[in-house]
């Protein structure tokens, strides 16, 4: 089903338009607002569809802006967010991996642990992927291993490790385009990417004036009271 139709918006609408349409619909179809409605089940189904459509659109748009969709590690909340398994959100992890995989098989094959890691990553289960990878003995860790470790680390929110692993992967296989692509994506998230543009647009504050303007007197006064009392 076309997610834009579900929300009644068009592809040219802004993110805020999408958010507004979603809010209106989700308010109308929210299960809490329809407790006594005779069509409760149908309405709940509609509510689910609205949420799926909204996530799909927002993920698609994020993908376009070159942003990643980190799943948020260890989350115990059942709501599924697009992660690495979702090709559109991640800009084609599986695709990139397949290319890489073909190359790998020509040379030295891929261990079952690494295959398991790939499957975990596809399903957005980064920490399980990392566990599987750590089963591979150190002398068998090749470029692909470091690449997968980088992807899994990024999924867990471990950005420093992700950076280290991908550098090592590139060191081992300097000409591998998949590794380079991922490294660029990592760096796009970080320095030089869309976030930096936003940061520049909002201005770079030097806290002297900003951190004291809201209620400096109050803080000073309280500190004084606090010190006197003790």
């Amino acid at each position: 089903m076309d997610p834009y139709k579900v929300l009644g918006v068009s592809r040219s609408d802004s993110d805020d338009d999408i958010k507004r349409a979603y809010r209106n619909l989700s308010r109308r179809y929210h299960p809490d607002a329809n407790l006594n409605n005779p069509n409760k089940d149908a309405i709940e189904e509609k509510f689910k569809q609205i949420n799926i459509a909204y996530d799909q659109i927002m993920n698609e748009r994020k993908g376009g802006a070159g942003q990643s969709a980190g799943r948020g590690p260890g989350s115990s909340y059942g709501y599924r967010q697009a992660g690495f398994s979702d090709d559109s959100a991640f800009g084609g992890f599986s695709d990139a991996f397949r290319r890489n995989n073909e190359r790998q098989q020509q040379s030295d094959g891929i261990s079952p642990e690494m295959q398991a890691a790939v499957n975990y990553i596809r399903n957005g289960r980064s920490s399980e992927a990392m566990h599987a990878l750590l089963e591979v003995p150190e002398y068998e860790r090749n470029g692909t291993w470091f690449y997968l470790a980088s992807v899994a680390s990024q999924g867990m929110g471990n950005m420093a490790n992700a950076q280290n692993f991908i550098s090592r992967a590139i060191q081992l296989e300097p000409n591998n385009p998949t590794f380079r692509e991922f490294s660029e994506r990592l760096n796009n998230i970080g320095a030089g990417g869309w976030y930096e543009t936003g940061r520049a647009a909002y201005g770079n504050p030097y806290g002297n004036n900003s951190s004291s303007s809201w209620c400096a007197d109050l803080i000073c006064m309280n500190l004084m009271c606090f010190c006197c009392r003790c």
Binding site: D15, K19, M58, K62, Q67, S68, A69, Q81, G157, A191
Partner: peptide, 15 residues
């Protein structure tokens, strides 16, 4: 930057 941009990513997913 890497940490805060992931935070913004999650924020932008919220309506």
């Amino acid at each position: 930057t890497a940490y805060i941009s992931e935070c913004v990513n999650a924020f932008e997913m919220l309506p």
